[in-house]
Design a protein around this nucleic acid. Structure first.
Lengths: 340, 340
DNA sequence: ATGAAAGCGCTAACAT
DNA sequence: ATGTTAGCGCTTTCAT
């Protein structure tokens, strides 16, 4: 004779009472319906419907240890590169009915730590993370505590930690080689600071391409460090060059946003792309193909990156670590190819 | 004398044993440290450190009913509009140390339902959702079960459900009025199908602007329905127009991607923007300002949209529902303004 | 095929 | 200030 004043969520005990069965049977209907007589099952299902019963996930997880959730932490959810990676992750997880909790660290190690702890407290199977810094010891200890870890967009520095990354050295090489093949003998590289691994790697790739062509990087490569990896950075980079009287013939930009700013600035100065300057970007973002002058760019297999990371995470425990490295691909468009 | 073979996560009982205190004390150290003697606290903290103890969130939530998690479901995480909204949400949640589980439904009602159920099972405080269809009865029943619900980017059809949206009628009106002010007397609208609420609303806004200017929409408005709301759709729209010999002087596109395709196609046909055709887009995405011809566009307060939604969700239970409608804003750039 | 009951790890009374 | 203990809702033996 209890009068429910503050409405409480229905539990399986409530369902059991209404259906006239035991909680064990309700649990069976929920998890192994084949073990229960159709008639009983029917009664239970009616009761579930009637009470609008929704299973309590916390209790379920506490008792069963069932974990069908994984975490993903990227640097910036408003960057198309990362959202594409996340979509790849979700795509793979869906195959096994796992779900991802997604968070962005905004390059902030403190935020990264907070989310990692949250994920761990909620007993995720594992996490995929693009580390905000080079310091990844916390990920190693996390793994020692039984949480799966896969490094995203960063090769693992240790052999027993799985990672998926893209070969940025190759990406830089592809871009530079393409420009050399267009007949250029000197390449200007609008790059970010080398403490960002991607920037250092792409630089190394450019050097490799130059050397392969028998050129001396000290002469054939002009590197300009841009203040930010976006359009304003690209504009600043081009201005720096022009101010010092250096008018490039071939420009490689560390990403498409930078290339966008470079393009804009060159135009304003009456310098034509591709007639006067050949331009190559990186990432092949959606709008690269849509610009007035479609942009040649290095495409990374973002979707696959995410899929593979999720794949590695879902492997049975004890599987050996794997370091996956994808190859980027050059997409040639107008911005780098002078009409014949 | 137990030998731990399969390593189990340390529990507060383990911590208590190591520290030589009771579980209650450990719990107090965790939740109300001021109630425990500094010396004892120290011992407990050492034990926690030593065992690398991480609290079990499921048990905690089961017992305490503590809910500091909310859910958010958007249509498409790779659309900058939605990622900006999500950032607004996260930004607001952070103030109260809540965290969001984010998911994208991909316009698929089935996915939307799946995620809603997952969220409910995990006892979220509430959900913010951009519904995939007009059918929202499941959200109403969800709320009856005690889960907070806020509609995102969609005004609520019922007064007791909170929502945050942007006035799309006004957005359409702003765009059209601007073009009329530039001296145009006929507006071509590359729009999506009217069963998408945003498209219907923006159309209504355009009509309003024309009527306010004393023009007859039947004559002054040419509406072309594009097959997709992206650059290819914009290209198709412009081609349709040109093929029927209709060369517009003022074009309003339902979003920036469509405008991008329109811009590209007009250029290829030797039609100059803005000299021959004035062009206005919608959303003011990042690259709108960065195009060779910077794009005039209607900006929506995406960040605020998310912040406000989270704000409504976090209000004390029993607060009256609110329907918030934001105003969009026209950002005028080169694409619509002929040089004097 | 179904029921009874233990217990997952934690928090919050309550007792000391 | 600290300890003891009930119980959150569920799954899963073990009986029947």
């Amino acid at each position: 004779m209890t009068i429910p004043t503050a409405r409480r969520r229905a539990s399986i005990a409530d369902v059991a009472r209404i259906a006239g069965v035991s909680v064990g049977t309700v649990s069976n209907v929920l998890n192994r319906p084949e073990r229960v007589l159709p008639a009983t099952r029917e009664r239970v299902e009616v009761a579930i419907e009637q009470l609008a019963f929704v299973r309590n996930g916390s209790a379920r997880q506490l008792r069963a240890g069932t974990i069908t959730t994984v975490g993903a932490i990227v640097l910036d959810l408003s960057n198309p590169f990362f959202t594409d990676v996340v979509r790849g992750i979700e795509h793979r997880l869906e195959l096994d009915s796992y779900t991802a909790m997604v968070a962005s660290s905004d390059d902030d190690p403190a935020r990264e730590h907070r989310y990692l702890r949250l994920f761990e407290e909620h007993g995720v199977l594992g996490v995929m993370v693009v580390p905000a810094t080079d310091e990844i010891s916390h990920l190693l200890t996390l793994r020692e505590r039984g949480v799966g870890v896969v490094l995203l967009d960063r090769p693992s520095p240790v052999p027993d930690l799985s990672s998926v990354a893209v070969d940025d050295v190759l990406g830089g090489e592809l871009a530079a080689r393409h420009l050399l093949e267009q007949g250029h003998t000197r390449i200007t590289f609008l790059n970010g600071p080398h403490y960002i691994r991607q920037c250092a790697d792409r630089h190394a790739g450019v050097v490799r391409a130059l050397e392969a062509a028998g050129l001396d990087p000290a002469e054939a490569l002009v590197e300009v460090t841009v203040p930010e990896l976006n359009a304003d950075g690209g504009e600043a980079g081009i201005r720096t060059l022009l101010e010092r009287g250096d008018r490039p013939s071939a420009v490689f930009c560390v990403n498409d946003l930078t290339a966008l700013g470079a393009l804009r600035t060159l135009r304003r100065e009456g310098i034509s792309v591709p007639d006067d300057v050949a331009l190559v970007g990186y990432d092949d973002v959606t709008f690269a193909a849509e610009l007035a002058t479609p942009l040649t760019s290095v495409r990374q297999p973002t979707h696959q990156l995410g899929e593979r990371a999720a794949d590695l995470l879902l492997r049975p425990p004890g599987s050996p670590a794997e370091q996956v490295v994808f190859e980027p691909e050059l997409v040639v468009r107008e911005s780098s190819t002078r009409a014949a």
